[in-house]
Design a protein around this nucleic acid. Structure first.
Lengths: 217, 217
DNA sequence: CGTGTAATTGACTCAACTCAATCCCCGTGG
DNA sequence: CCACGGGGATTGAGTTGAGTCAATTACACG
């Protein structure tokens, strides 16, 4: 959820209340089941958000990029975080403790309004994603998923030419089994549209992927 | 999205800016592709929200009940409504035109805040639903879906003992084909857990359904 | 009391899952 | 510098849940 529109005055207020934190690759920003202590505004790097149900069903929710808010929804509802956030690569983020967040909501006229817009937008994206994922074959879901990830990873500074994601995370992101995901990815590789080396996946031909996904875009 | 917490002062402000509207069964509150003219605050009845992609994929998003806001997300993002809302039974709603909505956001200190909370909550429900639906078999999705609908329909005044939903909508709600949905529903009926007469579906044994769905609840 | 729409049932097919085995990196310690 | 795990990635084979197509039945309404 991007805060591009946050005006300078509000942004500086946020800065004032927040604390800069740095996470190294693989480090956990917050854990499943913890009560939220505050929200993060990402400055650099990627954060991978995943939820695991009590029966081991894992779902990778999203990859947040610089400018996105992370964890503020849980702060609002006051419920336990059902999710876990992990740094992909080095991550810098502003941490706004819960009380400060409340303070911002109260005192900054446009703060709630901006969050509302951002959240509404993100929600729309989700509804769209749900509609797509419910009925599309894995091959198309993977094509879409890769394009989404490509976009996410291109938002870091400097933009990454590849994306970093294990097969497991990729599978959990598009809602398929690892094996099926690997097979689809292999077929894309055989077509010369992507190449991969471990977790690093490079999109060579986004147009071709968009073509596969065109049924929905 | 429930507005239980909207304080009296805010509520009366909403009332002041709004216009009462009534829709009969099957009537459309707003259509796909229209620009949003305002938002609705449901007072009585149920509104069924569905999105259809350009390739005919239909997804029933949700069944909104009294107290929920409908259509305000699209108002916030300013995008065309990708969805359509239809009255299930008689529906009374307060319609708040877009300019009045803006006005409320500006002048009512807690308005944005309350919407933010409600939206955050609804979002969490969605993420949960997505996690569930991505990997669970149809039978369990149906059990969960029926329990959700039961809850929704119990919120109308007076509470309905049955829910009203065509097989097509039910199928689109749980993300399965009509035939598969019918088969699963028949099996529930054979077990004596539900009975149905046309669109009217009565849940006889919610515990049994919860048992089927227990892998996730 | 037709008649069209919704619901149901049957038969068949296939995409995607699971289980199982192997391969390939990548970091570690000798 | 290289052999040695160990976990992730890949490939193979078999099974099945759920979708499609097609036909039949049950309503709801004019």
């Amino acid at each position: 959820m991007v805060m591009d529109k946050l005006p300078p005055a509000e942004l500086s207020a946020v800065m004032e209340y927040s604390e800069q934190k740095v996470f190294e690759d693989g480090e956990v920003l917050f854990r499943q089941g913890q009560f939220p202590k505050g929200a993060f505004l990402l400055q650099s790097g990627i954060v991978n958000i995943a939820a695991t149900s009590k029966h081991g069903q894992r779902q990778v929710i999203y990859f947040y990029a610089p400018g996105d808010w992370v964890g503020f929804r849980q702060l609002m509802t006051g419920t336990q975080l059902p999710i876990e956030g992990t740094a992909v690569g080095r991550v810098e983020a502003l941490f706004i403790p819960a009380p400060a967040f409340e303070e911002l909501l109260r005192t900054q006229r446009l703060f709630a309004r901006n969050l509302l817009e951002a959240l509404s937008f993100e929600f729309s994206v989700w509804v769209n994603r749900m509609t797509i994922f419910t009925k599309l074959p894995v091959r198309e879901r993977l094509a879409i998923g890769l394009l989404i990830l490509r976009d996410r990873f291109s938002r870091v500074e400097p933009p990454l030419k590849y994306l970093v994601c294990s097969r497991t995370d990729l599978a959990d992101f598009i809602g398929a089994s690892i094996e099926t995901t690997v097979r689809a990815l292999s077929s894309f590789r055989d077509s010369g549209w992507v190449k991969s080396r471990g977790k690093k996946i490079t999109i060579l031909d986004p147009e071709a992927l968009a073509e596969v996904a065109k049924a929905v875009l």
